[in-house]
Structures are given as C-alpha cells and as structure tokens.
C-alpha cells in the first residue's frame, strides 16, 4: 500500500512540476494545488497507513489510528485553501490590471515594464 501511495505522490509531484513550469498563471495555480495535495498525501503515508478505530479514548478498542498526521493535514489543507484562494484573486486582479496571464510578460525587466 505504501508503494502505491508513493507512486501516486510521485505522479502528483510530477504533474505539479510540469504545470508550474508552464507560462499561464492559471496552470501554475493548478500546479500549486497538486503540489500541496501531494504533500498532504505524503504526510498521511509517512504517518503510517493502517486500519484502526477513531482515536478517542475508550476501553474496548486496542488499535488506534495516529491522529497527529490527520491534524497536520487538516491544518495544511486549510492553509493551502487560503493561499490558493488568494492566489486566484491575485491572478485575476493582475489579469485585469496588466492584461496578460503570461509569465513571460510579467518578468519585470526594463524591456517590458
């Protein structure tokens, strides 16, 4: 199972890298989204994949899932949710203001200022 997850994470990172290297801002944003998905899956895998009960203290259950990776992922998801939303609004605003979503034209050298 871990190997399968590793492959999935690898694919996500590959796609993310490919998308982030493209010129269009929208693709870059999708790339960052995939990157953070990959990172979250990685936390889940690194915390150990196993079946178990909800980690709430009761007498009968012996086998708990580790709650920490899930807490970490939830936090990371919320953060990347916020950042992605900000990025989208920023990209939209930039598109309105400068009139392009091509990173080449957003370089900021003297040539195209």
């Amino acid at each position: 199972m871990e190997i399968l997850m590793a492959i999935v994470i690898g694919i996500l990172f590959t796609c993310a890298t490919y998308l982030m290297l493209s010129k269009s801002i929208l693709r870059i944003i999708i790339g960052t989204g995939l990157l953070s998905h990959g990172a979250h899956l990685l936390i889940l895998t690194m915390g150990g994949l196993k079946r178990g009960a909800v980690p709430i203290l009761t007498d009968k259950i012996q086998d708990y899932v580790d709650p920490l990776p899930q807490a970490l992922i939830l936090t990371a998801i919320v953060i990347s949710f916020g950042v992605t939303a900000f990025f989208l609004v920023l990209a939209y605003r930039t598109y309105q203001e400068i009139g392009t979503d091509d990173m080449d034209q957003l370089r900021g050298t003297k040539h195209n200022e």
């Binding site: 916020g82 939303a85 989208l88 609004v89 939209y92």
Partner: peptide, 13 residues
C-alpha cells in the same frame, strides 16, 4: 466568512 468573501470577490466583477 472567508469562503463567501472569496466567492463574492471573484464572482461580482
């Protein structure tokens, strides 16, 4: 609040 602000900001213009 956050979700609706985001949607409104992108949606209204």
């Amino acid at each position: 609040g956050v979700t609706m602000t985001i949607i409104q900001t992108i949606g209204e213009s």
